[in-house]
Design a protein around this nucleic acid. Structure first.
Lengths: 358, 358
DNA sequence: TTGAAAGCGCTACCAT
DNA sequence: ATGGTAGCGCTTTCAA
């Protein structure tokens, strides 16, 4: 049997296609009564409404926004920060009747062939993209650019034309470092993750603890080194060693901190670049019978919901608001004047930090 | 400036549109050399590849599948079962170069107007839908049906034509009940959630503990009551009282079990319809100085990754495999013969259950 | 308030 | 291996 289209309904009722179209898209343009007759006929004939693809093609609108997301969805969903962000983004999207298209991108770890990923970005029927922790140098970003779609990044990009919602990473990290400085700490360990955002570059591999300045010099201009810079600035004379966690997870944080704890002259404080990593650090301490905030101070970054439960001193950065703001920049671009929005951060002191043990 | 299209590239190179199209979609159909010339010209002219909407319209393929998902994304993402399911689904999708479109649907709690939700389903440019814990009676499902798109549900539906991937809920619950029967328990509390799947019906509100048979009679044929039936069947002579948790979350589980624990003649065992709820039950026990498995036995349902850590006796049902199977039924339908796939379940005994205290 | 015409950009098909 | 033709289903524009 032939497919039921707008025309089918129009013919059945002896009206024009435009009128049927209006019944769905511009209810005010026709009488209530006609509209209902049309909708009833549609239901009767099993017509589900205007075809989505045809509508998108003709109108140029799709009713969806794309989210360029880490390839590893299970990891992404178990990251409380990502969940908070998505929550905010989804809230705004929903208000606009807009769906979210998750487009996984290559993390550089291989897996999906690059061609497939680019194909997914080309084929995505969306009105715009959010780059979630995906670096602007990723090839997928060039495709979005060529498609002429609006996009918003989740961190301050190098390209001044690219809109973004971020924080001042250096200033935020400075607050964390300053807090430790006030408490008298002079030997500090930093646990960062292996990734400077998702990109086609090889990840960072440090062989054991490395002096902070050396790491900063390795990747100038990257988001993660901005944090290192902030730490360094607040603690100019401290002995700061950096280790990397395999990924941004609790377990990896616990592993990564081991070499810092088990050193003979161990640090008196640990700065973790995320709360999730900090939780792992705390696990490792407890496992060794050490008490966070007494034997060793721990500072996180993010202030995810679980941080309170851990008594974790950390830097609060907006999660849900960041998602909301990205959503607004994509869906209500005219309401936001700035190209690069910086959200506020704040030091939250809990029990995981204390004065340097004497 | 005019938009760059296939035709632009074709004209610039003096070839036909079909050839340019083939360069993107059927690389084998033309010489390597011509293909490269075309791609190079495209890059030069800032052409991002065939327009996604036009391509979808013409070819009838979209490269995306829709996921009808609970409206409350934050809740969904913090549910370990959902995350596991998504992992499996995303894995298969990725293998097919397919993205995932999250379409939030009304949970019945209000919020988004119904019209918007239906619009989102109509406008979704997808090749098929997965109904994740969305009941087939939801209006969105009628739209999908009318659109003629394939869909797969995540539980056994009433409609025999609807494909699904589920488990035998009654048999699985029976195993849990049987385990308690063997341990000698005769007074049992059940904690279920308020929702029988997401649907346009009002949720279930019990006023305090209610005899199990009464709840079963309330909603015959629903997934959750299948589990109750299984419990009942395994413990025909036991005194089984049911309470409802406000939602499927740890905190809600802790609250819901209180009335069961604090009763004068308290139960000796608790059956929770999900692990997440069981974790809350365990929280509540510990808070009262009770030891799970000794003072009170607790059985969960799902066997999410955290269950081991809690020592939770539970029913294992495949999470990731369920997602994978749904993905395959949607993207490789011919490889799966059955319409209604039932996955195996298994009792996993850990330390949260023990003999009835004498 | 309704209708007729035009064409969005592409791919399937068939011909060469 | 490459090109020409037709038309996917719709919304927009403009006229009535």
């Amino acid at each position: 049997m032939p497919r039921v289209t707008l025309q089918t309904i129009a013919d059945a009722l002896g009206v024009s296609r435009s009128t049927v179209s209006n019944a769905y898209n511009k209810p005010d343009q026709l009488t209530q009564e006609l509209r209902e007759r049309i909708l009833a006929e549609a239901t009767k004939l099993g017509y589900a409404g205007p075809d989505a693809a045809a509508r998108s093609l003709r109108s140029g609108k799709t009713g969806a926004i794309g989210l360029l997301f880490t390839e590893s969805l299970p990891y992404a969903f178990s990251d409380p920060y990502a969940v908070g962000f998505l929550t905010g983004l989804a809230e705004v999207a929903e208000r606009h009747g807009t769906s979210l298209l998750l487009v996984p991108v290559d993390t550089g770890l291989g897996g999906t062939p690059e061609a497939d990923l680019e194909r997914a970005v080309r084929q995505a029927v969306v009105d715009g993209f959010c780059l979630y922790c995906v670096d602007e140098s990723h090839p997928a970003v060039d495709i979005i650019r060529a498609r002429g779609l609006p996009m918003v990044a989740t961190y301050p990009p190098k390209d001044p034309h690219l809109r973004s919602v971020g924080i001042d990473d250096e200033a935020a990290a400075f607050k964390a470092g300053e807090h430790l400085a006030r408490l008298g700490h002079e030997r500090i360990g930093v646990v960062m993750d292996r990734w400077f955002g998702i990109r086609p570059f090889p990840p960072l591999d440090l062989e054991g603890p490395t002096p902070i300045q050396q790491v900063i010099d390795l990747a100038p201009g990257e988001e993660s080194t901005f944090r290192l810079r902030g730490y360094r600035k607040a603690l100019p004379d401290a002995d700061i060693m950096v280790t990397t966690a395999e990924r941004n997870s609790r377990a990896a944080g616990a592993v990564a901190v081991e070499e810092l704890i088990d050193q003979r002259c161990r640090s008196t404080a640990i700065l973790a670049v995320s709360d999730v990593i900090a939780f792992g650090v705390i696990d490792a301490l407890r496992q060794r019978g050490l008490t966070p905030g007494q034997d060793l101070s721990v500072v996180g970054f993010d202030d995810v919901p679980q941080a309170a439960e851990f008594g974790l001193t950390t830097i609060r950065q907006p999660m849900v608001d960041r998602g909301r703001m990205v959503g607004r920049m994509l869906l209500e671009p005219d309401t936001i004047a700035e190209r690069q929005v910086r959200l506020p951060t704040e030091l939250v002191v809990r029990t995981s930090t204390g004065p340097r043990p004497s």
